[in-house]
Simulated scan of single mutants.
Amino acid sequence: MTSRRSTSDLRRLCSGPGRLCQALEVDASLNGAQLFKAPFQLFGGKGWPTVAGRIGISVSVEIMWRFGVGGSPFLSCPFPANKTP
């Protein structure tokens, strides 16, 4: 992942959808692939996921398609630490 992203800064390695896709080598060839089948493998993490409106766009900002864990330093724009669903 660090070689694909050309960085060793763990906080910037996967912060944001574009960086995450680059780090995991997710490209257009995986469009439509199911997240619960190979080549993907998902595991539960620590903390409750938070849902919020999207950022960095000008339309459909009210759609709650932004997920993260409150207080995580690995998000491009962190959620408040006490914000939970």
Score class of each variant (00 low, 15 high):
residue 1 M to N: 04
residue 2 T to Q: 07
residue 2 T to K: 08
residue 2 T to L: 10
residue 3 S to A: 12
residue 3 S to C: 05
residue 3 S to L: 12
residue 4 R to H: 09
residue 5 R to K: 09
residue 6 S to Y: 08
residue 6 S to D: 14
residue 6 S to Q: 15
residue 6 S to K: 15
residue 7 T to H: 07
residue 7 T to D: 03
residue 8 S to R: 10
residue 8 S to P: 01
residue 9 D to A: 12
residue 9 D to M: 06
residue 10 L to E: 11
residue 10 L to I: 03
residue 11 R to T: 08
residue 11 R to L: 08
residue 11 R to M: 06
residue 11 R to E: 03
residue 12 R to S: 04
residue 13 L to R: 01
residue 13 L to Q: 01
residue 14 C to Q: 02
residue 14 C to W: 07
residue 16 G to K: 04
residue 16 G to T: 09
residue 16 G to A: 11
residue 18 G to L: 07
residue 20 L to C: 09
residue 20 L to D: 06
residue 22 Q to I: 09
residue 22 Q to P: 01
residue 23 A to R: 06
residue 23 A to W: 04
residue 24 L to R: 06
residue 24 L to E: 03
residue 25 E to H: 07
residue 25 E to F: 04
residue 25 E to Y: 02
residue 26 V to G: 04
residue 27 D to Y: 01
residue 27 D to A: 12
residue 28 A to R: 07
residue 29 S to F: 04
residue 30 L to F: 06
residue 30 L to H: 05
residue 31 N to Q: 11
residue 31 N to Y: 02
residue 31 N to T: 14
residue 31 N to H: 08
residue 32 G to S: 08
residue 32 G to V: 06
residue 33 A to T: 15
residue 33 A to W: 10
residue 34 Q to P: 02
residue 35 L to W: 09
residue 35 L to R: 14
residue 35 L to S: 08
residue 36 F to I: 09
residue 36 F to Y: 13
residue 36 F to G: 09
residue 37 K to D: 10
residue 38 A to D: 13
residue 38 A to E: 14
residue 40 F to T: 04
residue 41 Q to K: 12
residue 41 Q to I: 01
residue 41 Q to P: 00
residue 42 L to A: 15
residue 42 L to H: 02
residue 43 F to E: 14
residue 43 F to D: 13
residue 45 G to D: 10
residue 47 G to E: 09
residue 47 G to C: 07
residue 48 W to H: 13
residue 49 P to E: 10
residue 49 P to V: 11
residue 50 T to I: 00
residue 51 V to R: 13
residue 51 V to H: 06
residue 51 V to D: 05
residue 51 V to E: 08
residue 52 A to V: 01
residue 52 A to N: 02
residue 53 G to Y: 10
residue 53 G to S: 09
residue 54 R to C: 13
residue 54 R to E: 12
residue 57 I to Y: 11
residue 57 I to H: 14
residue 58 S to N: 14
residue 58 S to T: 15
residue 59 V to F: 11
residue 59 V to C: 07
residue 59 V to M: 13
residue 60 S to E: 12
residue 61 V to A: 15
residue 62 E to A: 15
residue 62 E to R: 14
residue 62 E to Q: 15
residue 63 I to K: 11
residue 63 I to Y: 05
residue 64 M to A: 15
residue 64 M to Y: 04
residue 65 W to E: 11
residue 66 R to H: 11
residue 66 R to L: 05
residue 68 G to M: 03
residue 68 G to A: 03
residue 68 G to D: 02
residue 69 V to I: 11
residue 69 V to R: 03
residue 69 V to F: 00
residue 69 V to S: 00
residue 70 G to W: 05
residue 70 G to N: 01
residue 73 P to Q: 03
residue 73 P to Y: 01
residue 75 L to R: 00
residue 75 L to N: 05
residue 75 L to K: 00
residue 75 L to S: 04
residue 76 S to T: 02
residue 76 S to E: 09
residue 77 C to S: 14
residue 77 C to G: 05
residue 78 P to Q: 03
residue 78 P to V: 04
residue 79 F to S: 05
residue 79 F to D: 01
residue 80 P to D: 10
residue 81 A to I: 15
residue 82 N to D: 14
residue 82 N to S: 15
residue 82 N to K: 13
residue 82 N to H: 14
residue 82 N to L: 13
residue 83 K to T: 03
residue 83 K to M: 15
residue 83 K to H: 12
residue 83 K to P: 00
residue 83 K to R: 13
residue 84 T to I: 11
residue 84 T to F: 05
residue 85 P to C: 08
